[in-house]
Amino acid sequence: MGAANKWSDTAMLVIDMQKEFVDPAMSSLAFLAGGEAILPAVTQAVELARERGIFVVWVVREHDPDGRDVELFRRRFYSGGKGPAMKGSQGAEMADGLVIKEEDYKLVKTRFSSFFATNLDSVLKTSGIKNLVVVGVQTPNCVRQTVFDAVALDYEKVTVIVDATAAASPEIQMGIYNLCVAQQTSET
Score class of each variant (00 low, 15 high):
Glu187Leu: 14
Thr43His: 12
Arg74Gly: 04
Arg68Glu: 05
Glu171Phe: 09
Val108Ile: 14
Glu93Asp: 13
Val158Ile: 06
Val14Ile: 08
Asp69Met: 00
Gln90Val: 15
Phe21Tyr: 15
Phe77Gly: 05
Ala11Leu: 07
Lys125Ser: 11
Phe77Leu: 14
Ala166Glu: 10
Asp64Glu: 10
Pro40Val: 00
Gly2Ser: 15
Phe21Trp: 13
Glu93Ala: 12
Met12Asn: 04
Gly35Ile: 01
Ser89Lys: 06
Gln173Glu: 07
Glu156Pro: 00
Ser114Asn: 05
Ser186Asp: 10
Glu36Leu: 06
Leu32Gly: 03
Asn141Thr: 02
Leu124Val: 03
Met94Ala: 10
Tyr105Thr: 09
Asp23Trp: 01
Cys142Ile: 01
Asn131Ala: 03
Gln183Ile: 11
Gln44Ile: 08
Gly91Asp: 01
Pro140Phe: 04
Phe112Arg: 11
Leu153Ala: 14
Ser114Gly: 15
Leu13Trp: 04
Ile161Tyr: 15
Gly97Met: 02
Asp66His: 09
Phe21Asn: 08
Thr43Lys: 13
Ala164Glu: 02
Val42Met: 07
Trp7Thr: 12
Ser186Trp: 02
Ala152Arg: 12
Val99Pro: 08
Met86Glu: 00
Val56Ile: 05
Val70Tyr: 01
Gln138Phe: 08
Gly83Thr: 00
Asp16Glu: 14
Phe73Leu: 09
Ser28Ile: 00
Gly136Ser: 09
Lys157Val: 11
Thr159Arg: 03
Leu98Asp: 09
Gly91His: 01
Leu72Met: 10
Phe148Leu: 15
Gln173Thr: 06
Ala3Ile: 13
Lys125Val: 00
Ala33His: 05
Val135Ile: 10
Gln90Gly: 14
Met17Pro: 09
Glu102Phe: 04
Ser122Met: 14
Pro24His: 12
Val57Cys: 12
Gln44Ser: 15
Ile176Cys: 11
Gly88Asp: 02
Tyr155Cys: 06
Ser113Arg: 02
Thr165Asp: 03
Gly97Pro: 01
Met174Lys: 15
Lys87Thr: 14
Phe55Ala: 08
Leu32Val: 06
Pro24Asp: 07
Ala92Thr: 05
Ala11Gly: 08
Met1Cys: 08
Ile161Glu: 14
Val70Gln: 05
Gln44Arg: 13
Thr139Cys: 04
Val99Ile: 14
Ala41Met: 09
Glu93Arg: 09
Ile176Phe: 11
Ala168Asp: 14
Asp96Lys: 10
Arg68Asn: 10
Met12Thr: 07
Lys109Asp: 01
Leu179Met: 14
Met174Glu: 15
Met94Pro: 08
Ala85Glu: 02
Val135Lys: 00
Arg74Ile: 00
Val108Cys: 07
Val137Glu: 10
Val14Met: 08
Gln145Ile: 01
Ala117Val: 04
Ile38Pro: 09
Ala41Thr: 06
Val134Met: 04
Asp154Cys: 05
Glu187Asp: 14
Asp96Pro: 05
Leu98Trp: 10
Thr159Lys: 04
Asn141Ala: 12
Arg50Met: 05
Ala85Gln: 01
Ala45His: 11
Val181Glu: 12
Arg76Asn: 03
Asp9Pro: 09
Glu71Cys: 01
Met12His: 07
Gln183Trp: 15
